[in-house]
Design a protein around this nucleic acid. Structure first.
Lengths: 337, 337
DNA sequence: GTTTAGCACTCTACAGTTGAGAGTGCTAAC
DNA sequence: GTTAGCACTCTCAACTGTAGAGTGCTAAAC
């Protein structure tokens, strides 16, 4: 075998052995496990070279080698063969996700729970980000003499409500007027366009009505903001107990908005993000495997698991890929009512 | 001083010193800190007695004493003077809770965040349990040709929505019929009474209509179930990093339903629950300080902090009591629209 | 030029030892 | 009932020695 090819094989074997055992891998272990036809001295030379080039490190002088983040990256990019989830596995995943799932939120929580169970990692699922979605319909529901609820239905299936109060008496007639007026203005508008200037311009266009509308307009804007907000479901907190990176990850979880933003920033495809490649320092020693689910065939929310660098990347990728496509299927069914 | 009174004083002093320093308290330290007018030998005799009666323990032969759970309990019941939060403190709490609080959920999340900040403990806030509350109003909003959304407004101010589909075409007229029919049946009914038998009986009473109603009825029941469900907001996960009980508490947090149930089971007043007094084993080495907030003057949800047994109980009680009443005020304002 | 055997070297992990310091329980006297 | 004095116990931290694992280097073999 060519020296170059052998080195690649040695690196893969070290990653795989280290992932399995957690022990630094020495030259002798490597020969017996990888079935190499060379002596330990040769392997040592190759390992020294790989160390020099930054793919491996030695915890201390007399220890075996451990992959660096660069080592894992090389392994994931060049030496990984992902075997898709079996047909039975896929059915199991699909059925588990659908269990008692009467809303998209439920499906996503199911997904996080399931991923934790299948991967033994903390898992996340985000709601679809609303950046691309538009207002499908606005309705009003009376809730009291001076209060009502605005209901916004977005094109990605998300429904948000917001209460508001008025000085004047709210009658069914007024709500009908609101309904007609606001649907005319908002229908088809992108959620991201609904900001203060937008509602001010809208209000100005209503003549007499504009005196009655402000609180309703603000309620619609608030509902739109809520619909754009990404919320995050997670599962597997308990796994952090005793985990080496547990403290860091807890710090990461502390701030909901950071978590949402970090997950949103993940690639649009199934992907592995290793250590410092992550946008948050708290994840500098963790690996994130993620997949997007799609709604109406465009990337929507993300499923992800966070675990140690030392993880079975092939398995994780297979599971996430499958879960992602199952979630897509389920949500698309639910939404196109 | 009477020996009995002195022992009580010694126990309190040990609790307070241990809470402050975290170090087992020896007889000499005790004399200098509690200003006792007896010798260390006398104190040692008293400590030996308190140890025998289960109020103190020695981590090892040559160490000072540490309070047992029984010791803490005695201290909390007999030696604690709670000084109410100052007027300024109260205003600060009240204002912080109200910040950007446009829904009860927001107020509760604010409360959890604030409690974490003030107490350096993980904090929880539960939504009002719906056991006592009744249906105030039901509305329907069309969302598509064959789908609509049921909106249930409960007497405790909670609003829940549920989508449903029908085989037949949904027109505004049909929804008006639904609206009238279902408000007649459900208005004033306790949420806990809305179960399968109830909706079956209800459906039976509608004659011809009953063919159209089932999915709407089920949607109302589902919304009612959602409204009864207690959800839990929490804050301070990051504090678990490096905490001695962190692992246990993470395990406790793992299951949302257990958390909700445990919190619901806490006393109706401001209270301290110490170690094994808690209903969950994971909290056997933690203390929970809790307060109920009230809606319409009856106990609704709970605010709680979970921390080490070794905590400043007086301060915690003061803060929780204050936060509880501030949340009550705020929510009552929001709800009686 | 590449590969190999052999050997000296380095480092860790673990177990055992030691001495200082803290705090106790007991006893005899007040 | 309280106190002084003293022997005793236990922890903690620092230090030591040893076994084991794995390396890097060198000189010889392919």
């Amino acid at each position: 075998m060519e020296p170059a090819a052998r080195k690649k094989r040695i690196l893969s074997a070290i990653v795989e052995s280290y992932v399995k055992t957690g022990e630094p891998v020495g030259s002798k272990t490597l020969i017996s496990e990888a079935g190499l036809k060379v002596s330990s001295a040769t392997v040592r030379n190759d390992m020294a070279d790989l160390t020099e080039r930054g793919y491996l490190v030695q915890p201390h002088t007399s220890a075996g080698r451990v992959p660096t983040q660069r080592g894992y990256r090389f392994y994931v990019d060049n030496a990984l063969t992902v075997k898709p989830v079996s047909e039975q596995g896929r059915m199991y995943i699909s059925e588990t996700l659908a269990q008692g799932a009467d809303s998209p939120e439920n499906v996503l929580q199911n997904a996080a729970n399931l991923l934790t169970r299948l991967t033994d990692c903390i898992a996340f699922a985000t709601t679809p980000n609303g950046e691309e979605s538009r207002v499908r319909k606005i309705s009003f529901v009376p809730t009291g003499a001076h209060s009502a609820m605005a209901v916004l239905i977005a094109s990605n299936g998300v429904i948000k409500t917001k209460l508001f109060r008025c000085e004047f008496l709210i009658t069914p007639e007024i709500l009908t007027v609101f309904d007609n007026a606001l649907n005319e203005v908002f229908a088809g508008v992108r959620l991201s366009a609904i900001n203060r200037p937008f509602i001010q311009t809208a209000a100005a266009g209503f003549g007499d009505l504009s005196l009655l509308l402000p609180s309703a307009l603000i309620a619609v804007k608030d509902a739109s903001d809520l619909a754009r907000e990404v919320s995050v479901y997670h599962s597997g907190l308990g796994l952090l107990a005793g985990d080496a990176q547990g403290d860091r990850i807890l710090t990461f979880l502390q701030n909901r908005h950071d978590v949402a933003a970090t997950l949103e920033r993940l690639p649009l495809d199934t992907a592995v993000t290793i250590g410092r490649e992550n946008s948050r320092v708290e994840l500098a020693y963790s690996a994130v495997v993620s997949a997007r689910y799609r709604i109406d065939n465009s990337p929507a929310g993300v499923l992800a698991v966070v675990g140690p660098l030392r993880m079975d990347y092939a398995k994780m990728l297979a599971v996430l890929d499958c879960a992602g496509s199952c979630v897509s299927e389920l949500l698309n069914e639910m939404i196109d009512v």
